[in-house]
Each structure stands twice: as C-alpha cells, then as structure tokens.
C-alpha cells in the first residue's frame, strides 16, 4: 500500500486542490474535536459552564487529571483495562495460533467442519448471544469478574484471529515440515521451532487488532461487570459521565476521556501502517 514518505509522490496538479480541501475538512473536524476536549479538560467547572465553549482555558487546571485518576477512579479502570485487554489478547492469540496450525497444514477428517465452526463467529452478530452468555457466566460463577470478561473477550477474538492465521500459514512452503521430519523432529517440536518463528507479521497483526478491540469493548463489559472496582475504562467512563451529569462535574470527565484515549492514539501513531493493513486483511476477506 503506502510506500515510504516522499518516494513516488505525484507532481502537484491543480485538481489536487479539491482533494486537499476535502481531506483538510475531515482532518480539521478531528483536530477540532480533540482540541475542544483538551481545552475543556483544562478548565474549571465554573469556567466550563460559564464561558463560551470556544474560549480557551484561562486557569489551566492540570489538577483535573489527578482528580480523574484518583477521585474519579480512572486509575482503577485503567488498571482493569490493562489487565483484561492484555490477558485476553495473549490468550486469544496463543490459542488461535495453536488451533490454526492443524487447520491450515494438517489433513484430518472434519477439519473443514471445525474451521467453519470457528468462522461462524465472524458472521453471527455478537449481540444475540448476550442473554445466554450472561446466564452461563452466572452459572459458572464468573459473572462480575474480570476472569469471565477475559475468557469472553478471548473467545470473541478467536474467529478473526484463526481466519487470519490460517490464511497466513497456508502461504508457507510445505517443505518446511518435510525437512524438519527428515531431521528427526517431532510434530510439536516442528511447530514450536520451525513454524512459530516464521509467524511474526501475522501474529503482530492479530495481536494489535485484538488488543484494540479488547481495550475498547463496551457492550460485554456493560453486561457482565457490575462492581465499580472491576470496570474497564469504557464502562467506567460511561459510569463517570452519568455521575457527572448529576453532579455537574464535567471537567473531570473530559480529563478521564483524554486519559482513556491517549494510549491507543500513541500505539496508533507508532503502528499506523500495521494496524491499517491488519484491519484491511480481516474486513475484506471476512
């Protein structure tokens, strides 16, 4: 897709101006929205309500961030989000790499049935299963626990991950296993020593996508977690917004939103190309 910056850029032609105007409008909308949040997060509540929304802050309340982190509970939400998103991602990626290997490279009876079982998860909308899922987790004693949420997230990462990894592993040459077998390596040693080291780009793509999904997930977190001290960021911030509306404590909420957004924007800034490629791979073939 995109090549290195500067290389192969087109010479400027007048009709390019239309494109710049169009892209500029979109970029401006994004920058404007973020700037407004940053600005509001640095006001006092009185300033936020009393001054026009476009006026820049005069008080520079950096304390709002500390306020959100401690009193608002954002620190705890952040910790929960890290714990849940990281564990679910690791689990979901490892299990799907394991499962994808036989599905992609070993001929056995029922393999296409198993594969379509996994891929069904890509086609059925998630929202229909939430009631029995809620009941199942209640029966297993996993309701309102972070472990339950981790297992659910890992499961919902599987279809996409397996889909991508099966496609990826099929592109590797067959001779890899043959050569390893000639050298006397057993099948699992072959997998861990020969195949795994070659999976880097595919694993990177599914790890990033899974992590973003798990970090941002709202619906299941809302359905399955009820105690405030176990909430992840999206639900925690929503909870905070409910409280803000009654207590007129707006600026803390804006600070909280920025805290939630900052890490993903940072990740995105560094891994932009990987992320867009990963998303494209999944969405198009799926």
């Amino acid at each position: 897709m995109s090549t290195d910056a500067g290389a192969g850029r087109a010479r400027f032609r007048p009709f390019h101006l239309y494109f710049y105007v169009l892209m500029g409008a979109f970029a401006l909308a994004a920058v404007g929205a973020f700037a407004w949040i940053v600005n509001s997060s640095l006001k006092t509540d009185v300033e936020f309500i009393g001054s026009p929304p476009f006026s820049t802050t005069t008080s520079w309340q950096f304390g709002n961030y500390a306020q959100a982190w401690e009193a608002g509970g954002v620190g705890a939400f952040f910790g929960n989000s890290v714990l849940v998103a990281v564990s679910a991602t690791v689990l979901g990626v490892f299990f799907s790499v394991l499962a994808a290997y036989p599905l992609a490279r070993i001929r056995f009876r029922g393999s296409s049935l198993v594969l379509s079982g996994f891929l069904m998860g890509l086609m059925v909308p998630w929202m229909v299963t939430f009631i029995p899922l809620y009941l199942t987790l209640r029966d297993l004693g996993l309701l309102d626990s972070r472990l339950g949420l981790v297992l659910v997230y890992a499961t919902y990462n599987l279809p996409f991950n397996i889909f991508v990894m099966v496609g990826f592993m099929r592109t590797l040459p067959v001779e890899l296993e043959e050569a390893a077998a000639v050298d006397g390596a057993g099948p699992s040693a072959t997998f861990f020593r020969v195949i795994m080291p070659l999976l880097g780009p595919g694993v990177a793509a599914i790890t990033i996508i899974s992590f973003l999904n798990n970090w941002n997930e709202f619906f299941y977190a809302l359905v399955l977690i009820h105690s405030e001290d176990r909430m992840t960021l999206p639900v925690g911030i929503w909870q905070l917004s409910q409280a803000a509306t009654y207590g007129s404590n707006w600026v803390t909420l804006f600070a909280a939103m920025l805290i939630a957004v900052a890490p993903v924007l940072l990740v995105f800034a560094f891994l932009q190309k990987r992320i867009t490629e990963g998303l494209t791979a999944g969405a198009l073939k799926g």
Binding site: S2, A5, M23, G24, F26, A27, A30, V31, L212, W215, N216, F218, L233, P234, V235, I237, W238, M257, A260, V261, V264, L265, V267, F268, A269, Q272, I275, T276, L279
Partner: peptide, 17 residues
C-alpha cells in the same frame, strides 16, 4: 501521511469515548 493519521485516528478510539 498526516491526513491519513488524522482521518484514521478516530477508528482506534473506544466507541464509548
């Protein structure tokens, strides 16, 4: 690249936020 970043950035944000 700059435009790509700015236009794509909202995608990685949480729906809730």
């Amino acid at each position: 690249r700059v435009f790509r970043f700015l236009i794509f950035a909202p995608v990685v944000l949480s729906v809730a936020v």
